[in-house]
């Protein structure tokens, strides 16, 4: 009984925190800081650098939202969350925004009471193995031991894939990417499976990345995106349109370097509306009209973020692929700023 009461108290405390932040935008403004849930360490997406400053693809999105809402990309408190704790952290109000390689799925959107603000990376699940294993296709992995992060969609995809292909495997349940990396390198598993971007990022941190191959099979669709609590539409809009602003800025050629110049001199009305020199778009979301300008000045546009954190010039070396603009044959397509 005492235990139940204690647990009840905990739950209620957590829920009370969740309720307190029904209007997240006002809370964030009042607090002067954005609480952003990120991966505890996935190089290129979210990881603290040598000086302890968080950097990466997902981190940039947090900074962009902070720039839009608070006017300062540095006013972010990064909360490292594991695959298991992330949804609870969001539901309880511990974080305002979850930008953590989270796959947008039906049940998460509905049953878990989350809202996805969009897709910032189109990914798919793959396998990484040692080169000397001599495996060239995922179909040859029958009987293999596979490291898998628990509490993820990849865990379910893995089970489906092996069942569908009539193969068996031994799962090794791991809690974090760091643990998976350690187990995989120690030979605790033959293959490591997660989103291909995650594999590339993990491999980039190895001492001998050339001895590991990512198999060609992509066994699932993993649209990764930022998530917010369900029911707070205003806050959801702010995050959605911040992401759209980053994507649209790349489409229209607005960069961190030329954003001031574009705002002053661009003849294109869509750019004018985006950057706030024309119309009142900012006010409609509860922000000021310069919000998008601040975002782009702070983090650069989507393409700039991509190439600085995970692009082909970085050790992670991901090609744009599906994540190119729709005009370049990719899937990125920002809704019009009108």
């Amino acid at each position: 009984m005492t235990k139940t009461v204690f647990f009840g108290t905990l739950t209620v405390a957590g829920l009370a925190a969740g309720l307190a932040s029904a209007a997240t935008l006002d809370d964030v403004k009042a607090r002067g800081e954005l609480n952003c849930g990120v991966n505890p360490g996935l190089v290129g997406f979210a990881a603290p650098d040598a000086s302890g400053t968080w950097a990466g693809f997902d981190v940039s999105l947090c900074r962009a939202v902070a720039a839009a809402v608070l006017g300062d990309p540095q006013k972010v408190r990064f909360v490292p969350t594991t695959a298991e704790t992330r949804f609870t952290a969001l539901a309880s109000g511990e974080i305002d925004l979850l930008a953590r390689n989270t796959t947008w799925t039906f049940s998460r959107d509905t049953d878990l009471s989350m809202d996805f603000a969009g897709v910032n990376y189109y990914d798919g699940q793959g396998f990484m193995v040692r080169q000397d294993l001599g495996v060239t296709s995922a179909k040859e992995l029958d009987g293999a031991t596979v490291c898998i992060q628990t509490g993820t969609t990849t865990e379910l995809n893995l089970a489906d894939y092996f069942t569908a292909n009539g193969m068996t495997y031994t799962p090794v349940a791991i809690q974090s990417n760091a643990e998976g990396e350690q187990q995989y390198l120690a030979g605790g598993c033959d293959a490591y499976t997660t989103d291909i971007s995650g594999l590339a990022s993990t491999r980039a941190a190895f001492a001998d990345p050339e001895n590991h191959v990512i198999l060609p099979e992509v066994i699932s669709k993993e649209p990764l995106g930022p998530a917010v609590r369900h029911g707070d539409n205003q806050w959801g809009d702010v995050v959605r349109w911040t992401l759209n602003a980053l994507i649209a800025a790349e489409e229209y050629g607005v960069t961190a370097a030329n954003v001031e110049d574009m705002a002053a001199n661009s003849p294109n009305p869509e750019i004018k509306r985006l950057l706030g020199t024309e119309g009142e778009l900012g006010a409609m979301t509860g922000l000021d009209n310069d919000w998008a300008k601040r975002v782009i000045a702070a983090t650069g546009n989507y393409g700039e973020i991509f190439s600085a954190t995970i692009g082909e010039e970085t050790p992670i070396g991901l090609a744009r692929g599906l994540n190119a603009q729709w005009t370049q044959g990719g899937l990125l397509y920002a809704q019009p700023f009108r």
């Binding site: 695959a83 298991e84 949804f87 609870t88 049940s107 998460r108 049953d111 878990l112 628990t150 865990e155």
Partner: peptide, 10 residues
């Protein structure tokens, strides 16, 4: 662990 996470029924 896994059931809690996959179903979200904490």
């Amino acid at each position: 662990g896994i059931t809690l996470n996959q179903t979200g029924r904490e």
